[in-house]
């Protein structure tokens, strides 16, 4: 249990997907113009990230290795299988959300299918492989990583709404100032780096 919280806090705050690995920058910069859409996309990313990372963990643990079901080393299929899982999961989530809550579906709109090509999702799965997480850790990493991503995009959307009418030099407007703000946010998040998440659960 301690391990679970440890990984969760670490992936959400300390090793934030956007601010320390730059994953998902494309949609982060394109969709952060208003807080409402940013929140919708953030929720969708938490959802998809939380599902695909455990599923990809199961796949790489039980299908692709030599000791798995097929008994042959299939790791060269990893990229193609992972991206297929992500694409189909996004499709599935889209269908479920449409059936269960049409209101949420309408507010998310185009952003649900766009998550397929969000680097943060595939990046999460690949980090999960390279860091050799176990299953609970993979679940925690999925949820925490998604939450960190959502936190960052909502924060920058709020800042960009605030500075819309500020007097910024013309060549720096838009993209340039967004990068500078992201850099400053990253520096702020770096102050969390010294924290040892395990210390919270010692008592």
């Amino acid at each position: 249990m301690l391990d679970f919280f440890n990984t969760f806090i670490k992936s959400a705050f300390i090793e934030n997907m956007i601010l320390s690995y730059f994953l998902g920058m494309c949609s982060y910069l394109a969709v952060s113009k208003s807080v409402k859409t940013a929140t919708g996309l953030g929720l969708a990313v938490i959802f998809v990230q939380g599902i695909t990372i455990p599923v990809n963990w199961l796949i790489s643990e039980y299908l692709l290795v030599e000791t798995g079901i097929f008994g042959i080393d299939l790791t060269f299929l990893r990229f193609i299988l992972f991206i297929a899982v992500i694409a189909s999961m996004v499709q599935l989530v889209e269908m479920v959300v449409e059936k269960v809550s049409p209101a949420l579906y309408n507010s998310l709109g185009i952003f649900l299918p766009l998550i397929t090509v969000n680097c943060a999702i595939l990046g999460g799965s690949l980090f999960m492989i390279s860091r050799e997480y176990n299953f609970p850790n993979a679940v925690a990493f999925g949820l925490g990583g998604g939450m960190g991503w959502a936190l960052a995009i909502i924060a920058i959307a709020a800042i960009r709404e605030k500075i819309r009418y500020s007097n910024i030099p013309a060549p720096l407007q838009g993209l340039g100032i967004a990068f500078i703000i992201t850099g400053l946010m990253g520096m702020a998040f770096m102050s969390l780096m010294g924290i040892d998440p395990a210390a919270f659960f010692k008592y």
Partner: peptide, 11 residues
């Protein structure tokens, strides 16, 4: 060497 520097340089 930290990731944030890339942001400022790109800006």
């Amino acid at each position: 060497s930290l990731p944030v520097a890339a942001m400022f340089i790109l800006a």
